[in-house]
């Protein structure tokens, strides 16, 4: 099981640039999704006239399925400057790798719950850390793409773009840097120092 929680509206607004295309994924049966909150937020944005289109679907973590769902909506996507995705971390990563040169923003944080993890295809991995970093890393998860799960940039261990631990694995931060470069967002590397919060249990983190 996992729980997705919408990030604070203000945070999301600060990340939205220009027009927005929103993707809402109700996910698999194993996900608890903040449906009402998300719908209200998207309605707010729509009322301001900045939404080029919205799709509500499920299983966007499946790349083929995602592609099929987005196919008829590419004009609206092209028209948007920001793609706002409300889903678990796997969904956001699938969208950001498909729409490589778009600014893809994660609208939710994903928390783990014990139990059956569902049928999520593991082409992308979400650590369900509850403090989604995808908005600082161009939609590539630093926790799962970096063997040290570093959140403040690459270590000195990459050789020819490969990880020191596994020479078959691309350096996650090298990928993040290139992606940020591609979408013109290298400025996020100047963000404040990031610290993991391992106490994401509801009662501790609030």
């Amino acid at each position: 099981m996992l729980i997705t929680e919408m990030k604070v509206g203000e945070t999301l607004r600060s990340l939205i640039q220009g027009k927005v295309f929103t993707i809402i994924c109700h996910g698999c049966r194993e996900v608890r999704f903040p449906e009402q909150e998300v719908n209200a937020f998207v309605r707010e944005l729509a009322a301001e006239g900045i939404v080029t289109g919205t799709i509500t679907t499920d299983y966007i973590c499946n790349p083929d399925f995602l592609q099929m769902r987005l196919k008829g909506r590419m004009a609206e996507i092209e028209d948007a400057d920001t793609i706002l995705v409300f889903s678990c971390g796997v969904g956001v990563q699938t969208v950001s790798s498909y729409l490589e040169d778009k600014r893809v923003i994660a609208g939710c944080d994903t928390y783990a719950l014990p139990g059956y993890q569902g049928v999520t295809p593991l082409e992308h991995d979400c650590d369900q850390c509850g403090q989604c970093y995808l908005n600082l890393t161009g939609g590539i998860c630093p926790l799962t793409a970096c063997s040290k799960s570093l959140i403040n940039g690459q270590c000195g261990g990459a050789k020819n773009g490969k990880c020191e631990v596994d020479s078959n694995m691309d350096c996650g931060w090298e990928r993040i840097y290139r992606r940020l470069e591609k979408i013109g967002r290298l400025d996020v590397l100047k963000c404040p120092v990031q610290l993991r919060n391992y106490a994401t249990d509801d009662e501790v983190s609030r």
């Binding site: 940039g153 000195g156 050789k159 020819n160 773009g161 931060w173 090298e174 840097y177 290298l186 100047k190």
Partner: peptide, 19 residues
């Protein structure tokens, strides 16, 4: 701290150095 000036990705190294 350390920095790797002859790394194959100087721009990424400089970004980390700045952090």
């Amino acid at each position: 701290a350390v920095v790797s000036p002859c790394s194959d990705s100087i721009d990424a190294q400089l970004a980390k150095m700045e952090r």
